[in-house]
Design a protein around this nucleic acid. Structure first.
Length: 418
RNA sequence: CGGGCUGUAGUAUAUCGGUUGUACAAGUGCUUUGGGAGCAUUUAGGCUGGGUUCGACUCCCAGCAGCCCGACCA
């Protein structure tokens, strides 16, 4: 991608109406555009990040046996009345059409997925099954805040699993813990993310969350740093400490962001819709369920919060919009020609490259943009880099490093050979 | 939802009850080119609706919007 053709531009000033670091950098870099409080559009750079996160999640969910579907955003009122959540869920968006018919804008999809499965699940032979989707969700947050971290419209992966027994559910639940760890490792925040013991809401006493430690977090967790076992503040009590074999004195308090959660739903949603199966003995049983969520935009915002520096974002390689940011400096014809050759060679080698081919900009401006946009590797072609090698050199520098080095084109290409 | 603050150009800000000033961005010309360049020139602004007033961007009221604190958060 040639940056001269990219319709978005970077911005030097921080937006006045955003305080959070993730929103500031993402808006200044032109990754997202804010529409209203808690609602953002994804622009080319931001969408590339989102797509990469989505693909990681999709791959891992498929590997775990999940079957991808895409459910409707409009949800019938009847279904919500059946589960008692039409009036019971404060943050449900309700919209009505010209005939006065009311529907819900999906904040979650139990009310849809259960009736779907009811069409197909009748026997123990049909279970277990897990389905998931990646889709926009709507929640009427009383106070959207912290940029991408708490939105009113957001993209979420929600998986629902269906089982014949509690044992079977628990086996899957344990597997999902590992799957989630893999997702966060691949997204580059695994080293900061902990599985925490959390409260379970009204129908299940406890659940688990994945919390990423960062100062901007809204949540507070307590971590035993030697064992890596952690729990949320709201469940910090003697009973839980004993259950987890933790000592209060050894726990360290951290601010964190909830990037994922996994829940035991038991029969909470299968019962109202009578989602049941016939077992080996011919007896009818209610299906047991679990649900597993990851907020994609929130994950993106969390990465920015956790991995940026004062100059800008530092994308992990796996979710960076481009693998390399190539810069040409100056207007010298030889430099521009060489930079073009490098760009075309990278493209040919299948490397995702953002090429800052803009002319008329100072070197400092290009460097600042590169720092802000946060590609893992920066490559500079300039009069200076060319002079350093007889064959024409390229200065490369990792986003996390201060000093770069001069390499040949072949050496640069070799970096991306797998 | 309770409390607080704020709405001026694409962005960030300033002043003022009497022709809204600046910086960046954008356009044009020239110069410059390794950490957000220089000169000249051009373009572009008072959230909406009421009220007070000779006159309102400024004061008052309402609405809308945004941010912050709190509560809430499958």
């Amino acid at each position: 991608m040639r940056q001269s053709k990219l319709f978005t531009k970077t911005r030097k000033e921080s937006p006045a109406d955003e305080v959070s670091k993730n929103a500031e950098f993402l808006i200044r870099g032109g990754f997202v555009h804010k529409e209203m409080a808690g609602v953002y559009s994804y622009l080319p750079l931001g969408l590339r990040v989102l797509n990469k996160i989505e693909n990681i999640i999709r791959e891992e969910m498929n590997k775990a046996g999940g079957q991808e579907i895409l459910m409707s955003t409009f949800q019938p009122k009847d279904n919500w009345e059946k589960t008692g959540r039409w009036t019971g869920m404060d943050d449900l968006y309700k919209v009505s059409d010209s005939s006065g018919r009311e529907v819900a804008l999906g904040p979650t999809h139990e009310e849809i997925v259960v009736p779907i499965l009811k069409n197909y699940v009748t026997s123990y032979k049909d279970l277990p099954v897990a389905v998931y989707q990646i889709q926009n969700k709507f929640r009427m947050e009383l106070r959207a805040k912290s940029g991408m971290l708490r939105g009113r419209e957001f993209i979420m992966k929600d998986m629902y699993s269906f089982h014949t027994s509690q044992e079977d559910f628990e086996k899957f639940y344990e597997k999902m813990k590992e799957v989630y760890k893999t997702v966060f490792n691949r997204a580059g925040i695994g080293h900061l993310t902990y599985l925490t013991f959390a409260s379970g809401g009204t129908f299940s006493k406890y659940s688990h969350e994945f919390q990423t430690i960062t100062a901007a977090g809204e949540d507070t967790i307590y971590l035993d740093e030697t064992s890596g076992v952690a729990l949320n503040k709201e469940v910090l009590n003697d009973e839980v400490l004993a259950q987890l074999h933790l000592e209060r004195e050894k726990l360290v308090e951290h601010k964190s962001i909830e990037v994922g959660n996994i829940f035991d739903l038991k029969t909470k949603y299968s019962k109202p819709f009578d989602l049941s199966f016939t077992d080996e003995k011919g007896e009818k049983n209610i299906v047991l369920m679990g649900c597993y969520g990851i907020g994609l935009g929130r994950l993106m915002g969390t990465v920015v919060e956790a991995l940026s520096d004062d100059k800008g974002i530092i994308w992990p390689e796996a979710i960076a919009p481009f693998q390399i940011h190539l810069l040409s400096l100056g207007e010298d014809v030889a430099v521009l020609k060489e930079a073009d050759t490098v760009y075309e060679s990278l493209l040919k080698a299948g490397v995702e490259v953002l090429f800052d081919d803009r002319t008329g900009l100072s070197a400092g401006e290009k460097f600042s943009d590169a720092d802000l946009l946060g590609m893992p590797l920066r490559a500079v072609v300039s009069a200076r880099s060319i002079k350093d090698l007889p064959s024409g050199g390229i200065e490369i520098k990792k986003r996390t490093e201060e000093k770069g080095k001069i390499v040949t084109l072949d050496e640069l290409l070799k970096i991306f050979k797998k």
